[in-house]
Design a protein around this nucleic acid. Structure first.
Length: 511
RNA sequence: GGUCCGUUCGUCUAGGGGUUAGGACACAAGAUUUUCAUUCUUGUAACACGGGUUCGAUUCCCGUACGGACUACCA
């Protein structure tokens, strides 16, 4: 078996889509599984759509996601260059060969002429409007025009393209690793442009030439390429490279969470989740689009989620380290049908991964939020907070979002609790608890509980009448970690003064 | 329109000629937690339809429907 060499080959026309990350991931997993090579090739043959910064963005995104590149742009390698715009001469040479062998030809038709041809065929009721064996002789190209004229045109400044001369009536068989046997008749394939008038190759040409030259063993790409795969097979054949042709695996698409169609940025925006791996600032509009990284997704969680979107190990295991993914991954177990994108499942994965992190890591998340808000706290406190919050969070920022009261006394109190539980009796209880707390000094949770119990039983008040408002004094709300633990972390003195503060504020409000 | 691809709970999926069609997310209920979350238990919920083949089809075959991709000098 030949060495596994796979490539992820995005075009730098913008930010990397989350579906692209999954494609890259599957390539990476296969490479690692077989001790092969993961290659990053940049397909920048469309100068009009080139977006500055996109290449760097792709590299940084993959790096963040933990998808390591062994060879290619940013990593170097023996098959350099890996940027297609730098390989023009190679394609030109290949295309010249194709023309000499009679598999390609020059075409001089203008855009208007092409449009006219399609219009003519459409009006004639043809269900395909192709530039092909049936129509090429009525167009302006090196097959239809006299040799002299062709020479003149080539030597003039007039633009021209090179087209593939597809021989009709041949069944092209393609074995896809995911879909099995696919057969397409060559009459369905048009004389695709191989070389554009600006001298750049099209995707089809560059892709085949590079995969061959870079000794790619498996082409793993999105399903949108399946219809043109037979064309690529034809190219390998015409080049005489069919024996070295890579194996194909066309991945199912990522679909919208609701409705029909493939997942788009619009859907993500509409439903409030990221579509790009990391922040993307559109250089044209200046718009900043939030990424998974900045939204608080851990790369390991995102990868785990993505891996299972269209692939499964055949067991009930859901949580995978990257090494386990590499171990279990096989192309055969990739699904055929498209997968709806479900952000809730991604969140669940994030929660699983986040809570499994050591205190130290979680503390640093909290610390970051504190710094952002101009606050500081000692290690002992942040450790306690993180421990009591760890089973309650989904994102790193939740430690702050849901635990800010550990560092900031509430300045607002939940109206519902106030109207339901704030009364003369509960305030009497609170006053007693405050007094008792301030007298005890810093103590542990069970002592606080004893103090509170004693204070209330002394007054003959039931805990149920006071505890909700006690929490209200501490956090401003009705939800949160265990109350006594919360008070322990706050400290008895702070707890006492929060009670006083609440009584002062709410009494004014109610009068 | 044409070509190609697809179709198991709401979602991701396992399974496969005879199964109580399994798991996970989500949802719901109960228990724990004097709160909320976690955790645990339980529950609701699926083989698109029609023909074949077969003793038997959700599984194999063919159609239909539905969905998707492609149909550029874009990738």
């Amino acid at each position: 078996m030949r060495p596994v060499r796979v490539r992820f080959a995005p075009s730098p026309t913008g930010a990397l889509h989350i579906g692209g990350v999954r494609t890259a991931l599957y390539n990476f997993l296969l490479a690692r599984k077989h001790g092969g090579t993961m290659i990053l090739r940049i397909e920048d043959t469309d100068q009009a759509r080139y977006v500055p910064g996109a290449e760097e963005y792709i590299i940084e995104s993959l790096r963040w996601a933990g998808i390591q590149i062994d060879e290619g742009v940013g990593a170097g390698g023996t098959f350099a260059p890996y940027r297609q715009s730098e390989r023009k001469q190679i394609y030109q040479q290949c295309v010249r060969q194709l023309i000499e062998d009679g598999h390609a030809y020059y075409a001089f038709d203008s855009e208007a002429e092409l449009e006219a041809m399609r219009e003519r065929l459409k009006n004639a009721g043809e269900n395909q409007q192709h530039y092909n064996s049936a129509t090429r002789m009525s167009m302006k190209n090196s097959l239809s025009l006299p040799a002299v004229e062709v020479q003149t045109r080539l030597l003039s400044e007039d633009p021209y393209v090179v087209r593939l001369k597809v021989e009709p009536g041949i069944d092209i068989h393609l074995h896809d690793l995911i879909r099995g046997e696919v057969v397409v008749n060559s009459s369905q394939i048009d004389d695709k442009v191989l070389m554009k008038s600006d001298g750049m190759p099209t995707y089809h040409l560059a892709n085949v030439v590079d995969d061959y030259m870079m000794k790619i063993s498996h082409v793993i790409r999105g399903e949108e390429w399946l219809p043109s795969a037979p064309l690529h097979v034809l190219l390998y054949r015409y080049f005489g490279w069919e024996k070295e042709m890579p194996a194909f695996a066309h991945l199912p698409l990522l679909l919208k969470p609701d409705g029909n169609g493939k997942l788009s940025k619009r859907d993500a925006d509409r439903m409030g989740f990221p579509i790009f791996p990391i922040n993307w600032k559109d250089p044209a509009s200046g718009e900043l689009v939030k990424g998974y990284r900045e939204s608080g997704y851990l790369p390991e969680a995102l990868i785990n989620f993505l891996a299972l979107l269209g692939w499964n190990p055949g067991t009930t295991q859901e949580l995978f380290t990257i090494d386990e993914l590499i171990q279990s991954f096989t192309l055969e177990r990739i699904n055929k049908a498209g997968a709806r994108f479900d952000i809730q499942k991604a969140q669940w994965f994030n929660q699983q991964y986040l809570r499994a992190l050591p205190d130290e890591r979680l503390r640093s998340f909290l610390q970051e939020s504190l710094t952002q808000h101009g606050l500081s706290a000692d290690t002992q406190t942040t450790t306690k907070v993180v421990r009591v919050m760890r089973d309650r969070v989904t994102f790193p920022q939740d430690f702050w979002e849901q635990g800010r009261f550990f560092f900031l006394a509430p300045d607002q109190y939940d109206d519902q609790i106030v109207s339901k539980k704030w009364n003369e009796e509960s305030v009497r209880g609170l006053k007693e608890i405050s007094r008792a707390l301030k007298a005890t000094g810093p103590v542990a949770m069970d002592e606080i509980k004893a103090t509170v119990d004693k204070a209330l039983s002394g007054l003959g008040i039931k805990p149920g009448a006071v505890l909700p408002v006690l929490r209200l004094c501490m956090t401003g709300g009705s939800a949160g970690p265990d109350l006594m633990t919360t008070i322990e972390i706050l400290g008895a003195a702070e707890a006492g003064s929060r009670i006083d503060r609440a009584i002062e504020r709410l009494s004014i409000k109610t009068h």
